[in-house]
Amino acid sequence: MNERRIKIEGLRYNPEKDTQPRFQTYEVPFTDDMSLLQGLQYIKDNLDGSFTFRWSCRMAICGSCGIMVNGNPRLSCETFLRDLLPGPVRVEPLENFPIQRDLAIDQSRFVDRLASVKPYIVPAREKPLAEGPHKQTPGELAAYYQYSQCINCLLCYAACPQVGLNPNFVGPAALTLLHRYNADSRDVGWSARAEVANSEGGVWGCTLVGYCSQVCPKGVDPAHAVNQNKATSALDYFGLRALLGGGR
């Protein structure tokens, strides 16, 4: 494996010293098997110990390492330096979030929105332990499985212009989880989360740009989860949901 070098332009912002961000360029030697995350780690370990970024599992399951790579939301652990040649590679924190420091963002808006959709099973009925575990057919699992694959990486929030334009918008991942739980046969369904879904910051904040589904590293398809529920919310608005088999 021959060693090559690539330039990485990193956004720098120190909240204690800077009034606005600036860019700093680093030259990183790399091999074909190295991810961008490893490139960032090289910078921190060898060139500039103050360079700040989030990461954890380095295998695209924890959702920590989301950043903008040349303007596109990517997981740095799943992006390879060989694919970014000839460079320079511009790395910035995820769009639509306030910058805390360098590539690290303030995620609190997402955390709050997530809590508001009740991202847990709201049981359809009280099920005593003596009855044993819930059972689901493969079909019942398939109804929500794809949407349960979300790793909360926030790439979809960075992709969605409505997240940036509309501070009330709950956002793609949170609305997808709303759908994921509504669609789960163990859950009471739509009625538990209708207030959020029907609100202006709920499904109606989405204008179907569709970029969220394009950037999702797990194939969750948030655009689909959100936009399916526009029809449900509209039926609910006219009081027709139960009538047309909307159920609970």
């Binding site: 204690e16 306030p98 303030d106 212009p161 940036g164």
Partner: peptide, 8 residues
């Protein structure tokens, strides 16, 4: 933390 908001 004095976070920085980027304009769209």
């Amino acid at each position: 933390i004095r976070t920085y908001r980027r304009p769209m």
